[in-house]
Simulated assay, not measured.
Amino acid sequence: MKFDDAEDIRQITPLWQGERFPNGRPKVPTDILRRMQKITLEEAWGPLWQRGYRYQFEGDLKIIHPDKVIVGRAVTAVMVPKRPDLHETLLQYGHEQEGRKGFFNQWVIDSLEEDDVVVVDMFDKVYEGTFVGGNLSTAIATRTKRGGAVIWGGIRDTQQVVEIENINVFYRGSDPTAIGDVTLVGMNGPTRIGRAVCLPGDVVLGTPAGVIFVPAHLAELTVVNAEKSQVQDIFGFVRLKEGVYTTAQIDASWSLALWQDFLQWFQNEDSAASYRHLTWDDELNEARQRDERGPNSDVRV
């Protein structure tokens, strides 16, 4: 077996059609990551749930910075309990065949790029299951600039880690013991965090409510849907306060006339300025078709 194999990564992420890192990991554009910072967990969850991605969220985690949102590209790892023959074989292979240094957790952290988030299944091990401490968390901060880690297991040196401002760490528990009796059996392959599944290159959205893993090929769609919902809500609140429309009109599928009112507002209001990269051709075409069919009571999603 190989660690961090480009052919394997491409095989399990075939729906991603954009740029990739040299190891094959999907490289969701930085612009999408920055825009993802501004959406809520529920806004990210909705499009995934509707498309059958039912196991992308996990909320049963502790958080180093509970009020801080992080967004980054997933670098995944899977650990299992130590079995001596497997352990020694893989450790030797990594050192001699792939030129890796140190212990398994260091291999993962040494691979990080800017805006990455480490996602590690430590099989919920906390005692001697501390994937990072103060030193390795500092290394994560240095390499990722603003990323962090999601660990289905433990951390140590919590008082030191909490002082690192530019990352966030989601974890199951803390313990003073060092990492031990674990073996890395997968790097940048499918990884399970509680009830959620993460693939390499997924966009990790870590919030005070928990973590959601957005598949790379759905990241832009997720952001665009959330942004459209946000700016439509801003418009709706304005028009409701003005008494122009009823809640029934705002909550239903919009008529062509309402869409035209929205687009005029959208092009001129300061509160819509940050959303003007969005286009609305599909929505206008649907409204025209509905108007041609006559009034209906579809609820806008």
Results as ranks from 00 to 15, higher is better:
residue 123 F to M: 13
residue 262 F to P: 11
residue 273 A to S: 15
residue 127 Y to K: 13
residue 123 F to S: 04
residue 258 L to P: 02
residue 3 F to V: 10
residue 85 D to C: 04
residue 255 S to G: 08
residue 213 F to A: 04
residue 235 F to R: 03
residue 231 V to F: 11
residue 93 Y to G: 06
residue 204 V to S: 05
residue 19 E to W: 00
residue 260 Q to F: 00
residue 95 H to I: 14
residue 58 E to K: 03
residue 127 Y to T: 09
residue 250 I to G: 05
residue 180 G to N: 15
residue 93 Y to K: 14
residue 106 Q to W: 05
residue 154 G to I: 11
residue 173 G to H: 09
residue 95 H to E: 13
residue 28 V to Y: 00
residue 157 D to R: 08
residue 90 L to I: 08
residue 290 R to L: 04
residue 26 P to S: 06
residue 32 I to L: 10
residue 223 V to T: 11
residue 215 P to F: 01
residue 156 R to L: 06
residue 31 D to P: 00
residue 98 E to R: 14
residue 26 P to Q: 06
residue 97 Q to S: 09
residue 167 I to T: 02
residue 210 G to E: 06
residue 198 C to Y: 00
residue 34 R to C: 01
residue 44 A to K: 01
residue 100 R to Y: 14
residue 300 R to G: 02
residue 148 G to I: 08
residue 80 V to T: 04
residue 92 Q to I: 04
residue 139 A to N: 14
residue 232 Q to M: 15
residue 293 R to L: 14
residue 158 T to Y: 12
residue 111 S to M: 09
residue 79 M to E: 05
residue 188 N to Q: 12
residue 70 I to E: 05
residue 77 A to N: 00
residue 262 F to D: 08
residue 189 G to Q: 15
residue 153 G to T: 06
residue 257 A to S: 14
residue 145 K to F: 06
residue 232 Q to N: 08
residue 228 K to P: 11
residue 69 V to C: 02
